[in-house]
């Protein structure tokens, strides 16, 4: 196995792959997320978001506080579809 530096463990994306996407012109976290699923796994980007932001900052010369965060949508953690299908807890 060649050495890999993992950025997004959930979706198995390496630093090399993220850098290549930035080179191709995907210069925001949301764009990278949509093209690669980076940050869309069980941890919802808690591990990779900061690293991707740093990579975009390094490649574009922007400061970290200028890097736009992705859209945060519910649910913030994975839930089984059955929980949503089951509707609201009845005895409440």
């Amino acid at each position: 196995m060649p050495d890999r530096t993992i950025v997004c463990r959930c979706e198995d994306l390496s630093l090399e792959e993220i850098r290549e996407l930035i080179d191709q012109g995907f210069k925001s976290i949301d764009e990278i997320k949509r093209i690669s699923r980076c940050g869309m796994g069980p941890c919802q980007g808690r591990g990779c978001r900061q690293i991707v932001a740093q990579e975009i900052a390094a490649a574009t010369g922007k400061k970290l506080d200028e890097i736009e965060m992705p859209k945060f949508r519910p649910p913030v953690k994975p839930v089984k579809l059955g929980i949503l299908l089951g509707g609201e807890k009845e005895d409440e």
């Binding site: 649910p75 059955g82 929980i83 949503l84 807890k89 409440e92």
Partner: peptide, 11 residues
């Protein structure tokens, strides 16, 4: 807000 609680959804 919603929450997962005891296998169900809580509002």
């Amino acid at each position: 807000i919603t929450a997962e609680y005891q296998g169900r959804l809580l509002k």
